[in-house]
Design a binder for these strands. Structure first.
Length: 282
DNA sequence: GTCCAGGTTTTTA
DNA sequence: TAAAAACATGGA
């Protein structure tokens, strides 16, 4: 549904705060009680949601195609109510995590931005990840407004040197960003073609990039390619697995094809209630 | 000054 | 093969 510069999406089961603060994305910022501001698809966007009614405001007249883009971004056609019901039936802890922070959806983010963001995320904290990404956009992305900058394309970045990237203070990750930009821009790692590949093959391809290991590849697949069965194993998930499911090797043994969704609820809960792990330890 | 952060690579035993 | 150490930066 369209209204001037606003796109309306009705009956979307989403909690914007829980979704945007879940650690899957880095460019959304809260500007008021129910409203977030960010940059995606190269445009400045404001979004709010009250009682399942999502309003997406652009800096220009919205057209029909925009609605499709944002329906896809929020993945509104996936029935989270049904999935979450089935996941929480399989684990009491998941039910608890869902109750603690409901309405998290896995966004369908742009693959390059996702890959690049999670390369930056390694051995780093979320605040600094966000800061580095903003500097990357500020210095090397297209200017959209006084305050907004698009995420730079791999082609743009591939023309730079590691030294040029010192401006963003990403530390040892700069060489990894450059390797990713070069390999993606040259087509050596064709992000578009990953869409048609089996998850395991796509993961191997991503790991051809220097600085992309198992975890960064998994984040890219889950958040950039909507492979909902993929479970990124970061320090928090490893701690959680050891406490909650000590005799399980892989979350898919419990949660199956939607394990990635289970993962983000568990990750979010543990990160915000770290003391719970000590309580649960025997 | 020390430790740690949504890891990965390199070095060492 | 497995376990340490190194890697930049900034906040606690």
């Amino acid at each position: 549904m369209l209204f001037a510069n606003t796109i309306l999406l009705e009956n979307v089961q989403i909690n914007l705060e829980n979704t945007f603060e879940s650690g899957q994305c880095f460019r959304w910022n809260k500007i008021s009680e129910h409203e977030y501001e960010g940059v995606c698809f190269g445009e400045a966007v404001k979004i709010n949601c009250i009682n399942g009614l999502v309003r997406i405001k652009l800096n220009r007249e919205a057209i029909q195609a925009d609605e499709k883009i944002f329906r896809n971004y929020l993945d509104v056609s996936t029935n989270y109510e049904k999935i979450l019901e089935s996941l929480s039936a399989k684990s009491k802890f998941l039910k608890k995590a869902l109750n603690f922070a409901p309405g998290i959806r896995i966004l369908r983010q742009e693959p390059w931005e996702t890959l690049c963001s999670f390369i930056i995320s390694q051995n780093n904290n979320i605040k600094r990840i966000k800061d580095i990404i903003e500097r990357l956009c500020y210095f090397f992305g297209k200017r959209i407004s006084d305050y907004h900058f698009a995420f730079p394309s791999p082609e743009d970045l591939s023309k730079l040197t590691t030294e040029n990237l010192e401006l963003i203070r990403s530390g040892f990750r700069a060489k990894y960003i450059m390797d990713a930009a070069r390999k993606v821009a040259s087509g050596e790692v064709c992000l578009n073609s990953l869409k048609d590949m089996h998850t395991a093959d796509a993961k191997l391809k991503l790991m051809k990039i220097d600085g992309v290991g198992s975890k960064v590849a998994d984040c890219t697949l889950l958040y950039g390619y909507n492979r909902l069965d993929v479970v990124p194993k970061d320090v928090w998930m490893i701690r959680a697995m050891n406490s909650l499911f000590p005799n399980i090797k892989d979350l898919t043994e419990i949660f199956g094809e939607y394990s990635g969704i289970a993962q983000i609820y568990i990750f979010n809960y543990i990160r915000r209630n770290p003391w719970d792990l000590d309580v649960m330890k025997i």
